[in-house]
């Protein structure tokens, strides 16, 4: 089957799975993003202080500190050694994102994601095409730059412009002129370059992607044989390149989308009419299991035992 024309994007998924299942993860994700904001707003609005502070650092139920590790890293780069509370908070956040996937922060928590997703949706609807493109590596350059600049300037350099914390703070503490930043990112992503902010520039996402290397939860192409190459997952994926190794079997053979920049957003899971993808643990590599079974069938077990340990580990991982 050939690639689905853009007007028919998602139609097959709705026909096969029904409206809810075709948008399941998107709905849950939006719910998660809004819940984060609502939790922060419960305090100032209703006096229920479940979460206090903002995304940079907060206090949950008046006892558990949470601190954004990237913000704390900038502080450390200025040469200041923060108090223990901030470190405890950062470690808790680090552990959490090591489990759920580093850039899960981007698609499940970050308020800017709602803006850039809307931009991408508009691009499809209005068929906006722009030729300007940037390197996906730019964000790592910016990440390095913000840390070096923190050292040079002695202040948290990225926090002067960081749209993520600015918008979160604006919503929780009062808007001010922060809407200008939202508008700027919206215009950039809609008209100037596809997925410019989240996919190319944002150093916050770049930082969290570094945690994605060890992420426990990953998208798994469990039913790759059902794939009919409609390419809809490529179109909806905010980080297109992450699907290629799995579907095209380039690089190391795995059924898991292990790229650090996969945001675990689940759009591919939703959009696929034939249900190729599902959320899974990083250990359930179908490809290696199939390879293992094939090996069992073709070779004797004793022969397998003779293979050295490192090879075995590679096969099993």
């Amino acid at each position: 089957m050939a690639a689905t024309p853009i007007e028919l994007l998602g139609v097959e998924a709705i026909r096969q799975k029904g409206l809810f299942k075709a948008y399941k993860w998107l709905i849950i994700r939006r719910f998660s993003q809004l819940s984060v904001l609502v939790l922060f707003l419960m305090g100032p609005w209703f006096g229920m202080w479940i979460v206090k502070g903002n995304l940079n650092s907060s206090l949950v139920l008046e006892i558990v500190p949470l601190t954004d590790p990237y913000i704390l890293l900038q502080t450390i780069f200025t040469g200041y050694l923060p108090e223990t509370t901030a470190f405890i908070g950062a470690i808790l956040v680090l552990i959490f994102y090591l489990l759920v996937g580093g850039r899960a922060y981007c698609s499940w928590v970050c308020p800017i994601n709602i803006v850039t997703d809307f931009s991408m949706w508009l691009r499809y609807k209005l068929n906006i095409k722009s030729t300007f493109s940037m390197s996906r590596q730019t964000r790592y350059w910016i990440l390095a730059m913000t840390l070096i600049l923190s050292t040079i300037s002695g202040t948290l350099a990225w926090e002067f412009v960081n749209p993520v914390s600015m918008v979160n703070r604006a919503l929780v503490f009062g808007m001010g002129f922060a809407w200008i930043m939202i508008l700027m990112i919206f215009l950039l992503d809609t008209f100037i370059s596809r997925r410019a902010w989240c996919g190319h520039l944002c150093p916050v996402g770049a930082f969290y992607s570094l945690l994605g290397k060890f992420s426990l939860i990953r998208v798994n192409a469990v039913a790759l044989d059902k794939c009919d190459s409609c390419m809809e997952c490529y179109v909806v994926c905010p980080e297109q390149k992450v699907i290629t190794p799995v579907l095209k079997k380039t690089g190391r053979v795995t059924s898991l989308i292990n790229d650090v920049n996969c945001t675990n957003c689940g759009r591919c899971v939703d959009i696929c009419g034939t249900e190729v993808f599902q959320f899974d643990l990083r250990f359930n590599n179908i490809e290696s299991k199939q390879a293992l079974t094939a090996q069992y069938n073709s070779e004797s077990i004793s022969k397998l035992r003779n293979t050295n340990q490192s090879q075995k580990r590679e096969v099993l991982s």
Partner: peptide, 24 residues
């Protein structure tokens, strides 16, 4: 400026609500 992580917890814990966070 080096140490503050802009979290607003001081603003929240001020019983008189007289602190504010700097805006753009």
């Amino acid at each position: 400026q080096a140490a503050c992580i802009r979290c607003g917890l001081c603003v929240r814990d001020c019983p008189y609500d007289m602190l504010k966070l700097a805006q753009p």
